[in-house]
Design a protein around this nucleic acid. Structure first.
Lengths: 132, 132
DNA sequence: CATAAGGTCTCCATAAGGTGGAGAGTCAAG
DNA sequence: CTTGACTCTCCACCTTATGGAGACCTTATG
């Protein structure tokens, strides 16, 4: 099938499918006459796989890795699990960063009267390099 | 002072200071002879301000806005507070996204034996386009 | 058969927020 | 004067796409 149908079936924008093909995440064949990309059902499966993995915050390179594990019938589930646990760790880290961020911002926001006067503890906080 | 000292004092990489200067976030004077940038203490303050705001997830454009509020002695604290509350909202949203992401990943990771066998529910999960 | 509409192609630009390197100019010390 | 350390500008690259231009292909219709 052509790229339009492939895009529809994989729920990805055409541009994205073309991009994934450009970077070799998938390798559709090429019609020698028209130069059109030709997608198989297997390509669609891979696109769906990648689409999902991307939604789950796996990077393109991780997707590439997962795809090769996906294709490798002799790989151990261990490798896949390791990648997943690493991803969970990253999410944890990100969340705790965001959490402390939020705490500090909430604190300064609370201390700001938010009125018409120019005095603002938030600005003071951001400008103060000595503490915090 | 020159850019090297400015970078040290503001705890930013030289390249970043130059970048901020290029995009007009700060506007150091220029030595006409050497073409070197000349930074004042006020420039350092601004750099520290931006450095901190960036850490707190304010975008460059938001930093630009904050800087102009910072410099504007007649602005109301209201405007600053509004920007901060918006930022807190964004953080909340991001956190809840990450949270559901983590839940799903944890679930599939838990269901994976992580051994030498190739059977892996994670791969199955990512490959399955029909449900979840 | 010609033409029009719609698909597809490649190439380039843009986004954010920088980072890295090349090659040239500047400055201060020995 | 030379050496080394700084700094300059300009360009490319990173990630993950997205948007448009201009050209080519395919299919349907008159």
């Amino acid at each position: 099938m052509n790229i339009g149908e492939a895009a529809k079936k994989s729920n990805l924008p055409i541009k994205t499918v073309r991009f994934y093909s450009d970077i070799g995440l998938i390798n559709p064949k090429t019609n020698e006459n028209s130069n059109y990309r030709i997608f198989t059902n297997q390509d669609i499966e891979k696109l769906l796989f990648v689409g999902k993995a991307r939604k789950f915050n796996f990077s393109i390179e991780e997707c590439r890795e997962l795809l090769s594990l996906y294709e490798n019938r002799t790989r151990s589930s261990n490798e896949v699990k390791k990648l997943t646990l690493k991803k969970i760790d990253e999410i944890d880290q990100k969340m705790s960063e965001l959490n402390s961020l939020k705490k500090e911002l909430s604190r300064v926001a609370k201390s700001c009267s938010g009125d018409q006067r120019p005095e603002c503890p938030i600005i003071g906080f951001l400008a103060n390099n000595k503490k915090n």
